[in-house]
């Protein structure tokens, strides 16, 4: 009982939302769609996700929902690594970032908005 973080009250979080940000739901939806498409099995998902959660705990990451969904994202990136390379993902993340930065507020953000990006031009 000497580790107060570990015995943090659980019931106090009973009314906390299941998702803090929309990407967290999108991530689980994507994982579901990939299991449906047979890209990986539900067992591979829970094993990989579990390993990421253990790794996060071993690193001393705070035991909260943000750590949980970051572990889920790491698991998803790990399981799709054979289909999407790190370089490809990095390029696409940068393209989306530029698209958000160059789209005026209120307008839909699309990759088409990034002019001259060979990775994203239609």
């Amino acid at each position: 009982m000497s580790a107060p973080d570990f015995v943090a009250p659980l019931a106090a979080r009973d009314d906390a939302p299941a998702f803090d940000e929309p990407w967290q739901a999108q991530l689980l939806g994507l994982a579901y769609a990939l299991t449906q498409a047979g890209v990986f099995t539900p067992a591979a998902w829970s094993d990989t996700f579990g390993a990421e959660l253990r790794a996060a705990a071993a690193r001393g990451a705070t035991d909260n929902q943000s750590t949980y969904y970051e572990a889920a994202l790491a698991a998803l990136e790990h399981l799709t690594a054979g289909r999407v390379s790190d370089a490809e993902l990095g390029t696409r993340v940068a393209a989306w970032r530029r698209a958000y930065q160059s789209t005026p507020h209120g307008q839909p953000v699309t990759l088409d908005a990034v002019n001259g990006d060979p990775e994203t031009s239609p």
Binding site: L27, L34, A37, R92, W96, R97
Partner: peptide
């Protein structure tokens, strides 16, 4: 005002758009 999403949000968006283009996910 650009409402730039967080890094994990961008990564999910990037991953989904690539997997969709590769025909791996609907």
């Amino acid at each position: 005002h650009s409402h730039l999403p967080s890094e994990p949000a961008l990564r999910v968006k990037a991953l989904e758009s690539l997997l969709v283009e590769k025909g791996m996910v609907d």
